[in-house]
Design a protein around this nucleic acid. Sequence first.
DNA 1: GTTTTCGTTTACGTTAACGTCAACCATGTG
DNA 2: CACATGGTTGACGTTAACGTAAACGAAAAC
Lengths: 131, 131
Amino acid sequence: MNDADQYSIRDLADEFDITTRTIRFYEDKGLMQPARDGQRRVYSKGDRARLKLILRGKRLGFSLDEITQLVSLYETPEDTVPQLEQYLETLRNHRSLLEKQRADIERTLTDLARAEEECRQALTTTLNGQS
Amino acid sequence: MNDADQYSIRDLADEFDITTRTIRFYEDKGLMQPARDGQRRVYSKGDRARLKLILRGKRLGFSLDEITQLVSLYETPEDTVPQLEQYLETLRNHRSLLEKQRADIERTLTDLARAEEECRQALTTTLNGQS
DNA sequence: GTTTTCGTTTACGTTAACGTCAACCATGTG
DNA sequence: CACATGGTTGACGTTAACGTAAACGAAAAC
């Protein structure tokens, strides 16, 4: 079951270092809909990519509800003009949110860099025996 | 009570669009220790800055426990060599974590840009009447 | 002077995101 | 065939991060 675009639930759990419970939970929440071989879940490459997206969203601090939105963004929307425009709107919102978050990170990194510098200064001073 | 580096709990709650309950909760967790005027909490400029840091951490998806670490990083550590080295270590860990997170954001932004492009293509195609 | 307006403590309620456990197939291995 | 292995569906437990409500104190407004 390891070749040909097919993954068991354990394959994915091990690869991404999460529990099978977590994966089933995501399915409960409607985030994934793997195929079945009889009773067992069978995951395709697309399912795997989708899970990857979900976990990326988690790392970025999004809730599962938000991730539901985010993930559905990557599926091609319907072809009517109002739907496309709605879709574009949602895309823009998510982008601006992420850009704010990136700015937050930049600020924090700057702060950390300053703290590191001060710390190194203190270390050399201390090592030189100056009280 | 609005001038001279003094803020009431409501001032801060309104400014940062959170509830007073949240601020008191952070205090319970040891994240803040405002002064008191009799029974009432009085927040200094430093307290306000600290709260700002906490909220930034939240936006970045950190837990309050992690934020406790992060915030304490900005206070000058003790001056013994092992403590300074421990401090530097923690700083580096946080930095690498944030850098990973930034990379995640870049990837997601790229994906979003592609989705936006496809969407705009679809829009012009649809507007041109091509089925 | 009393009645709003803020604030305080205490305590129980709630939601998201899983963990944990039980009871039950299915299957392949000795 | 027995049984160990891996998966499945409930169902209840747990933790973090607050929400909400009660019961009270103080001070500011009418």
